[in-house]
Design a protein around this nucleic acid. Sequence first.
DNA 1: AAGCGAAGCAACCGCGAACCG
DNA 2: GCGGTTCGCGGTTGCTTCGCT
Length: 339
Amino acid sequence: MTKAASSTDQKNGLKKGPWTPEEDQKLVDYIHKHGHGKWRTLPKNAGLKRCGKSCRLRWTNYLRPDIKRGRFSFEEEETIIQLHSVLGNKWSTIAASLPGRTDNEIKNYWNTHIKKRLLKMGIDPVTHTPCLDIQQLSSILNFSLYDSPRVNHPPHFGMANNILNPSLLSLLAAFLSSSQNPDASNQTFQQNYQLNNSIQTFPLQENQSCAASQPLSLESQLMRDKIDQMISPPDTTNFSYQSSLPNEGQCQGGHNYPTSLLESHQIALNTRGEPNFTLGSLISYSTPSSSTSPSNLNSSASSTTFVKGATEEERDTYCSNMLMYNISNGLNIDGPCIL
DNA sequence: AAGCGAAGCAACCGCGAACCG
DNA sequence: GCGGTTCGCGGTTGCTTCGCT
């Protein structure tokens, strides 16, 4: 018998701590006969030396017949993250969307698994925004702004050649800016959200060469100047400025890339008007089925299939890669896009 | 095999909302 | 409208299990 199991409330003689099978049986039998509710009087009527609150908790979190036990599925996890990005710590509301799961179970799972994974991915679990440090973001921005050639990309990112994505860069720049001036963050994000929505998407033409260079738009140049003021420019002496478009595999067939990140909910706004980067959206890609590298995004295999069979570590690796790839290239479910 | 720290999870606690007389 | 009671939620605690040394 544990210390907690043997403890009792001195005033009322009520038992505390873990429930015994006998107590569980008494509670279940009583509720089957009389239904639940009136928790205050229930323990006395059921012959239990527990407070009503304890009985209610035991029933709703453990004994209820429709409780689903065991590991959370990928879909459940995705739902939790997406709902949390909108609702915050409203565990009971989140639980309402997950049949068989209790608020307590979801809360525990969040605190012990998801929170850690998001942090590992560089996402703030409270705000659902990137919490990469300035250096990491600067590095990403530099890759995009200075259009580094494929050969120089860090292999673990699984990057194809960059496609210039001024709106996403604006968001990242705003994030950098806000990290330097937190008071302005909300306003900056709102402005950039409007900016993103105002920028039209355009298709990548079939005859557009993968090796063709992409001239910087005026906006991008201004943004580059702005970011130059905040970060040190990279050493470009070894860069060859060859290509700014996706690799051959991704631009064949004259695909259109019409969906902006915002439209596809890849970046959703939270209640404070800031963009969210959620794990759930990140792993809703078409992805390779046999590799954790996100470099071959035009594969028709579903990411869900991959993630379902993946180990926890593989999920982490995959999601981290997706995050970095996503931030760098601004890809959505159909492949690269320009916001 | 033993010790120890970390992780996971069931249960508790305090507070606020809802309900009722 | 008010005060008392009940219920439910979210944060926290502490016990158990796991994994590493």
